[in-house]
Computed example of a mutant assay.
Amino acid sequence: MDKITNIPEIRFDGFTDAWEQRRLGEVVDIRSGRDYKHLNKGNIPVYGTGGYMLSVDEALSYEDDAIGVGRKGTIDKPYLLKAPFWTVDTLFFSIPKTDYDLYFVNDIFQRINWKQLDESTGVPSLSKTAINAVKVQVPTFEEQIKIGNFFKHLDHLITLHQRKLELLYETKQTFLSQMFPKGEESVPEIRFEGYADAWEQRRLGDTVVIFAGGDIDKSKLKKVGKYPVLANALTNDGIVGYYDSDFRIEAPAVTVTGRGDVGYAKARKVNFTPVVRLLAIKSDNDVDFLENAINNHKVLVESTGVPQLTSPQLANYKILFPTIGEQTQIGTFFAAIDHLTTLHQRKLNTLKEIKKTLLKKMFV
């Protein structure tokens, strides 16, 4: 017996009927956006492929919510549009027809590989004909509502975590500007109690030892091990693999990217080996303070190609230092913010992975 393919792997209780195939043109009414420049300022949002742009005094849809999908440019980032709204001519808006739930249809749009429908040889483009012809599977209206509401709440949770994460980034930037001296000043705006002395400017090379990363023995590189091997990349903390027994730099230390996103510093609390174009710093200064002091430093690198930061250039950074005690207080404070940020990022990533998995298992 052939396997039934029009029933999802996971369903809500009480639903057993097979889903039915429809063309997207039977599910939504695809409408075109228009130029807004003739309109006056108002309180009705105008949307493009990248999201909100500005507000005007007229709407293309006053009552019907819809799903925006790019006609040209960014064609693979559909998103909900709450009425009233106006869309520009590069953004279609799709209004669900009778007996089709907005949030369920939005989930369908999230699953479609829009790039496969690209009809251009240059800037990515979609046509109404291509969109209308897409074949999708749909359940009864009642099951649509159940599924749509489920993902609506999950999306809300993801948005909340995203906002918390953005707030943490903003909070850190605010404190960086207030807890480090500005311009030619030698005293920060905000200090921990008990510290009043002016900070002292020092050439970084006079207070730290800088090591340049080198080639690695790839035959010893493991996916899992004791000592990380760190590259210039910032993703996954720059880890490209592990050595079981060898390392070059003893923690605590600070790494600084030497190519691409130059000048990015990160405190390291585990012994490690840096690869080519990653600089490492050993110092008696607090490493968490040093990370933020370097990141707060204005990087000026002369390069005619890909930006590069050399050991002598890093050594010439002029940075203001407080006492070790104050460094430790500041470093611990920012390390706590970074830890909280990491936890929120992991939660957000987990929620996104959960959604990705459920979109596969709860749809046909």
Score class of each variant (00 low, 15 high):
residue 307 P to T: 13
residue 230 L to Q: 09
residue 293 A to T: 02
residue 272 F to E: 05
residue 239 I to V: 15
residue 289 F to Q: 11
residue 238 G to Y: 07
residue 263 G to L: 11
residue 253 A to Q: 09
residue 239 I to L: 06
residue 253 A to Y: 00
residue 264 Y to I: 13
residue 230 L to I: 15
residue 259 R to T: 15
residue 314 L to S: 10
residue 220 K to P: 03
residue 262 V to G: 02
residue 247 F to P: 02
residue 295 N to G: 03
residue 307 P to E: 11
residue 292 N to G: 00
residue 313 Q to A: 15
residue 213 G to D: 06
residue 282 K to M: 09
residue 215 D to F: 02
residue 220 K to Q: 14
residue 273 T to Q: 06
residue 214 G to M: 07
residue 289 F to Y: 15
residue 245 S to C: 03
residue 297 H to Y: 14
residue 284 D to T: 13
residue 281 I to V: 13
residue 267 A to G: 07
residue 257 T to M: 05
residue 265 A to F: 10
residue 242 Y to W: 13
residue 274 P to N: 06
residue 296 N to A: 10
residue 314 L to M: 07
residue 273 T to Y: 04
residue 215 D to R: 07
residue 228 P to L: 08
residue 255 T to Q: 09
residue 237 D to H: 11
residue 298 K to P: 02
residue 295 N to K: 03
residue 217 D to K: 02
residue 229 V to Y: 03
residue 220 K to V: 06
residue 273 T to C: 08
residue 256 V to G: 06
residue 245 S to L: 09
residue 294 I to E: 11
residue 286 D to H: 01
residue 221 L to D: 01
residue 223 K to P: 01
residue 218 K to M: 08
residue 230 L to A: 12
residue 291 E to V: 00
residue 248 R to K: 14
residue 240 V to K: 05
residue 292 N to S: 05
residue 258 G to P: 08
residue 214 G to V: 10
residue 234 L to T: 08
residue 271 N to V: 08
residue 277 R to I: 13
residue 254 V to Q: 10
residue 212 A to L: 03
residue 214 G to Y: 00
residue 268 R to Q: 14
residue 252 P to H: 11
residue 298 K to E: 15
residue 314 L to D: 09
residue 213 G to F: 05
residue 250 E to A: 12
residue 245 S to A: 10
residue 286 D to G: 01
residue 250 E to H: 08
residue 271 N to T: 09
residue 302 E to H: 05
residue 310 T to A: 01
residue 281 I to K: 00
residue 275 V to P: 00
residue 264 Y to Q: 13
residue 278 L to R: 04
residue 247 F to A: 05
residue 298 K to I: 14
residue 286 D to I: 02
residue 232 N to Y: 08
residue 228 P to T: 12
residue 269 K to F: 13
residue 296 N to E: 12
residue 298 K to F: 11
residue 306 V to R: 00
residue 295 N to M: 04
residue 259 R to S: 14
residue 297 H to I: 01
residue 295 N to D: 07
residue 270 V to W: 00
residue 245 S to D: 15
residue 261 D to K: 13
residue 282 K to P: 01
residue 295 N to T: 12
residue 273 T to H: 05
residue 214 G to P: 03
residue 309 L to F: 08
residue 301 V to C: 07
residue 248 R to G: 03
residue 259 R to Y: 13
residue 308 Q to Y: 10
residue 301 V to P: 03
residue 266 K to S: 11
residue 216 I to C: 03
residue 237 D to S: 11
residue 227 Y to M: 10
residue 248 R to P: 02
residue 301 V to W: 06
residue 269 K to N: 11
residue 238 G to P: 04
residue 224 V to A: 11
residue 230 L to S: 05
residue 311 S to F: 07
residue 277 R to E: 10
residue 309 L to A: 07
